[in-house]
Design a protein around this nucleic acid. Structure first.
Length: 413
RNA sequence: CGGGGCAUGGCCUAGUGGCUUAAGGCGCUGCCUUUGGGAGGCAGAGAUCCUGGGUUCAAAUCCCAGUGCCCCGACCA
């Protein structure tokens, strides 16, 4: 992609209302646009990252045997009355009326809808277990949106729902999902720890969150200094020392990037989602649900991966693989050299952003640091004479000179 | 929903009763020069000073109400 064609206008300074690093950089580098408090548009660079995260999640969900569906945001009141959440979940449930004055909710989560779909179809233990998931828009009437993309009112979420004939099968699957979540966060370049959590208005039994330690996080976790035990402070509060090994506990701020719930029969009982078991008895389906907010995950990566100059994207979710800069865009030899390299890399399936803009070198170098693509290639009069390019990783200071015919090899390494 | 802060061209800010015909930097348009860490010159465009009401001879500036944004708290899959 030619940067001169890219619909991205970086800002010289971050907007004054942005305080958290992710809010600052994602806005300054023009990945997102704030429409209203807690409501964001994803611009070309931001949407590229978002799609890469989505694909990583989709791969992991598919490998868990999840079948992808797409459920509606508009949901009738009666479903929410069945579980009693029409009242208990408000806020953050957005409510509205249609022209016939019928009450509707904008989905903040989809347990009711998915349980309804399942109860219409599943009658026998032979149909269990199975899992469904979606990557879809959620609406939450938050009392307060915070930290740019960290807590918003509309966002894309991956929600997976699993259905089992008994609790031990749920337990087994729950652990598999936890493992898949670990993979997802690792692939997104962040270190997330699994902590014991409260299930809140979702209800059910056991629950775990994946937390990323960060100063800007609005959650607090209690961490054992000795073993790997950790819990959300809302649970950890009741302990003075680690319940597992009596080790000392420390409290740190964190961002919740994923949540697992053992719903058990909480929803299936209320909504009469039953099946006939081997013994011929009718039983409620045992359920689990598992969520990840994509925008928050994207912002969290920025929270923990940035420096004074800008974002440092991990390879897997960077908007592009490589950022190529032609420092003197008026020098024909330099431009020819850069264009040639650009085409060669494209042929090798390297996703490349080529800064062909006629602007000064300082602007290009600063924009490259701000946008944060992991590999930067610089072509200038100096390097062109040597038939080479400068190779620099965004995460490191070291610059090395690489001969033109070795560039592809170096990038695919 | 309680507490606090902020609101001036697209962005960042100055101006805190009259010297304001609202200033500067960045950005934008045209021409010229320039090209290794946000380059220079010349010319130009661009502002309901958040909205409404009030005080005053006079309001971007003071007062009241509202709106929007940010932060803290409460709340929160």
């Amino acid at each position: 992609m030619l940067q001169s064609q890219l619909f991205t206008k970086t800002l010289h300074k971050p907007p004054k209302e942005a305080e958290s690093p992710s809010h600052k950089y994602l806005t300054q580098a023009d990945f997102v646009d704030c429409l209203a408090s807690g409501i964001f548009s994803l611009l070309p660079l931001g949407f590229r990252v978002h799609k890469k995260i989505e694909n990583i999640i989709r791969q992991e969900m598919d490998s868990l045997g999840g079948q992808e569906v797409y459920l509606p945001s508009l949901q009738p009141k009666n479903l929410w009355m069945e579980t009693g959440r029409w009242k208990t979940i408000e806020p953050p449930l957005f409510k509205l009326k249609d022209t016939h004055k019928k009450d509707l909710a904008l989905g903040s989560t989809h347990e009711e809808v998915i349980t309804d779909i399942v109860r219409k179809r599943i009658k026998s233990y032979k149909d269990l277990p199975f899992t469904l998931y979606q990557i879809q828009d959620k609406f939450r009437n938050e009392l307060r949106a915070t930290g740019g993309l960290l807590r918003v009112r509309e966002f894309v979420m991956k929600d997976l729902y699993s259905f089992h004939s008994d609790f031990s099968d749920l337990d087994k699957y729950y652990h598999k999902v936890a493992k898949a979540y670990e993979n997802i966060f690792k692939r997104c370049g962040i270190n997330a720890i699994q902590v014991e959590a409260s299930a809140g208005t979702i209800g059910g039994g056991e629950s775990h969150e994946f937390m990323v330690l960060a100063k800007t996080g609005e959650d607090k976790v209690a961490l054992c200094q000795k073993c790997n035990w950790a819990a959300n402070l809302e649970i950890g509060k009741k302990y003075k020392v680690c319940p597992k090994c009596k080790g000392k506990l420390v409290v740190q701020n964190s961002i919740e990037v994923g949540h697992l719930f053992k719903l058990g029969v909480e929803y299936s009982k209320k909504m009469k989602a039953n099946f006939t078991d081997k013994d011929g008895k009718e039983k409620p389906i045992v359920m689990g649900c598992y969520g990840i907010g994509l925008g928050r995950l994207m912002a969290t990566v920025v929270e923990v991966r940035h420096d004074k100059k800008g974002i440092i994207w991990p390879k897997n979710i960077s908007p592009f693989d490589v950022h190529l800069l032609a420092l003197q865009p008026t020098n024909k030899k330099v431009v020819q050299f850069a264009e040639n390299l650009y085409k060669t890399l494209q042929k090798n399936n390297i996703d490349i952003l080529y800064d062909d803009r006629v602007v000064s070198p300082g602007i290009k170098l600063n924009d490259a640091d701000l946008i944060g693509i992991p590999v930067r290639l610089v072509v200038s009069e100096k390097t062109q004479e040597k038939n080479a390019v400068e190779f620099k990783l965004r995460s490191q200071k070291k610059i090395k000179l690489i001969k033109k015919d070795k560039v592809v090899q170096e990038l695919l390494r």
